[in-house]
Design a binder for these strands. Structure first.
Length: 428
RNA sequence: GGAAAGGUGGCAGAGUGGUCGAAUGCGCCGGACUCGAAAUCCGGUGUACGUUUAGGCGUACCGUGAGUUCGAAUCUCACCCUUUCCGCCA
C-alpha cells in the first residue's frame, strides 16, 4: 500500500500520479475522512490518558488505605464518552485502511502514460523469427501429433483450461523447469526454494492479491471456517518470507528462485485463449523474487529482467521486451517489463514473463523491514519476475523448433536434460 | 486423531489485579580502564501510531479475538499456534 504520510503530505501529487493509471482519487472525500480521523483519534487518546492517570491515582490511594471514591466518580464520568470514541475511531480506521489498501501503487516516472496495452512501449527485440518453408502448426497440433498433449482427457479429468502431458513432452516440460532453476541458481546467484502451494489470507493480503482480487483465486475451505488460498504465483509464498520481519542489512539482497504450479481462476477471461495451453487454471512457473534496499531496487529490476531474458536467449527463442504503460500495470507495480516470445503460429509475440518492481508497496503492507546503516528500521523493496512461465515456454519451443515432418528439435540447452533425445518424433 | 505442557522484548526467563512496557541474565551499541585486547565497571538498547518548530508528550501492543474491572501480562470465555508422548501415514 501507499505510504499514509505521503497521502497526507502530498495528496494532490498522489491523485495526479494515480490519474495516469485511470484512477480517480476523491481528494475532498479523503481530506474529510482524514480530518475526522485526526479529531477523533486525538480526542480518544486524550480520554485514555485521563483514564490511565486517574486509575493510577486509585491504585495509589487504595495502597495508602485512603478513600478513592471521588476519583472513581470522576473516571466513571469518562466511561461513556471514551467508549463511544473508541468504537467510532475503530470504525473510522477500518474504513480508512480499507480505502488505502484499495489504492494501487504510483507508477515510476519512467513509465509511459497510457490507457491500455495498446499504449505499451517496445524497448528492444532479440533474435530473428525463423522463416518456415512449410505451413506452421500451432502447439496444439504439434503436441497432439507428438502424442504428448491431450486436452480431451484433461477435460474429462478436470475440465476446461487444464492440460495432460505425456512422454517426451512431459519430459521436455520438466527439462525446461530444471534448466531454468539451474541457470538461475548456478549462474545468477539465486537461492532455490520449495514453498507451500496453499497460503493463508494474510499472505495474499501482503502481496496485494487480497482484498481486491479474490475472484481470481482458488481457495480450499478449512474446518474452522477459514480457508487456504492456492497460490496464483510463487511470488506470494516467497515474498511473504519477509513479512513481519526486520532483516539485517548485510543479508541483503535476498535473491530467491522458486518453481511452483500456479493456480488461477481466470475469471473474466472467458473465451480468451481457449485453445491450447496458453491460459490455464494450473501452470508451472519458475519465479524470481528479490528483496532489496529501496535505493537499489531500480538497478535490481534491470538485472532481474536480464536474468529472465537469459533463459530465452539460451533457448534461442526470439522475443521482445516491452514496458507496460501506466494503465496496463498490475495493482502493486511501480514499473513492469513484459517479455514476449515469438509464436510463429500466432504470428505475434506473446507474454512469457512479467518483471516488476513494487518499491515498498508490498513491503509496507507486509511490515517487511531492514535495519539501515543508521540502525533505523526501514521498509524494504520487493521485486519479482517470471523466469519463465514453463508452460508457455514449452509452447514457444514446440512452435519455434517444429519441422515439416511434425517432429520438434530439442533446443541445445535442453538436450542434457533430455537423456540424449535431440528430436521429438511424431507418434504413428 | 488421543493425552499433556506451554505461548512475555533479539534470545533465555521472572512476573497471578494497581507507579509493569515489564525484573534478571545473555546478546548488541556507546563509554571508562588498557599500548591494544580480554576480563571488569558505567550507561544505553522493542514495535507501531498520534501529536509537536524543537526537546518532548501521549496512545496501543505480553499468541489472537471478545469479556469482567476505575485499572488486565495477570481473572473469564472462545480461537490459533508450538512442543512432547501415543496412534495413523507419503
Amino acid at each position: 500500500m501507499l505510504d499514509v504520510q505521503l497521502l497526507r503530505a502530498r495528496l494532490d501529487f498522489v491523485a495526479e500520479r494515480l490519474a495516469t493509471r485511470g484512477m480517480t482519487l476523491d481528494v475532498t472525500a479523503f481530506q474529510a475522512l482524514e480530518d475526522e480521523r485526526k479529531t477523533r483519534q486525538t480526542r480518544t487518546q486524550e480520554l485514555q490518558a485521563r483514564r490511565n492517570a486517574l486509575s493510577k491515582q486509585v491504585g495509589q490511594l487504595k495502597g495508602k488505605g485512603e478513600d478513592a471514591s471521588a476519583v472513581l466518580a470522576e473516571v466513571a464520568g469518562i466511561g461513556d464518552e471514551l467508549k463511544a470514541n473508541e468504537v467510532a475511531l475503530a470504525e473510522l480506521l477500518e474504513g480508512f485502511n480499507a480505502f488505502i489498501a484499495g489504492l494501487p501503487n504510483l507508477p515510476h516516472d519512467s513509465v509511459p502514460v497510457g490507457r491500455s496495452e495498446e499504449d505499451n512501449v517496445e524497448v528492444s527485440r532479440w533474435g530473428t523469427p525463423a522463416s518456415f518453408d512449410f505451413e506452421v502448426r500451432d502447439h496444439v497440433d504439434i503436441g497432439t501429433r507428438l502424442g504428448g498433449l491431450d486436452f480431451e482427457t484433461a477435460v474429462k479429468i478436470s475440465g476446461a483450461r487444464f492440460t495432460l502431458m505425456k512422454g517426451g513432452l512431459a519430459r521436455l516440460h520438466r527439462a525446461l523447469a530444471q534448466f531454468m532453476l539451474n541457470t538461475h541458481t548456478d549462474e545468477h546467484g539465486y537461492t532455490e526454494l520449495y514453498t507451500p502451494y496453499m497460503v493463508n489470507a494474510a499472505s495474499m493480503y501482503g502481496t496485494g492479491q487480497l482484498p481486491k482480487f479474490e475472484e481470481e483465486l482458488f481457495s480450499v475451505p478449512k474446518a474452522d471456517g477459514s480457508k487456504f488460498y492456492l497460490i496464483p504465483t510463487a511470488e506470494v509464498p516467497v515474498t511473504n518470507i519477509v513479512r513481519d520481519e526486520i532483516v539485517p542489512l548485510d543479508s541483503l539482497p535476498l535473491k530467491f528462485v522458486c518453481h511452483t504450479p500456479c493456480f488461477r481462476s481466470e475469471a473474466g477471461s472467458y473465451g480468451k485463449d481457449t485453445r491450447g495451453m496458453i491460459r490455464q487454471h494450473q501452470f508451472d512457473k519458475v519465479e524470481l523474487v528479490r528483496i532489496e534496499q529501496p535505493e537499489k531496487a531500480w538497478d535490481a529490476l534491470e538485472e532481474l529482467t536480464g536474468h529472465a531474458e537469459a533463459i530465452l536467449q539460451k533457448l534461442e527463442l526470439p522475443y521482445r521486451k516491452i514496458v507496460l504503460c501506466t494503465g496496463d500495470m498490475g495493482f502493486g507495480a511501480a514499473k513492469t517489463y513484459d517479455l514476449e516470445v515469438w509464436l510463429p503460429a500466432q504470428n505475434t509475440y506473446r507474454e512469457i514473463s512479467s518483471c516488476s518492481c513494487f518499491e515498498s508497496f508490498q513491503a509496507r503492507r507486509m511490515q517487511a523491514r531492514f535495519k539501515n546503516a543508521q540502525g533505523k528500521n526501514e521498509v524494504l523493496a520487493t521485486l519479482n519476475g517470471s523466469g519463465l512461465a514453463v508452460g508457455r515456454t514449452l509452447v514457444a519451443v514446440l512452435e519455434n523448433y517444429q519441422q515439416a515432418d511434425g517432429s520438434v528439435r530439442v533446443p541445445a540447452a535442453l538436450q542434457a536434460y533430455m537423456g540424449g533425445i535431440t528430436v521429438l518424433q511424431p507418434a504413428n
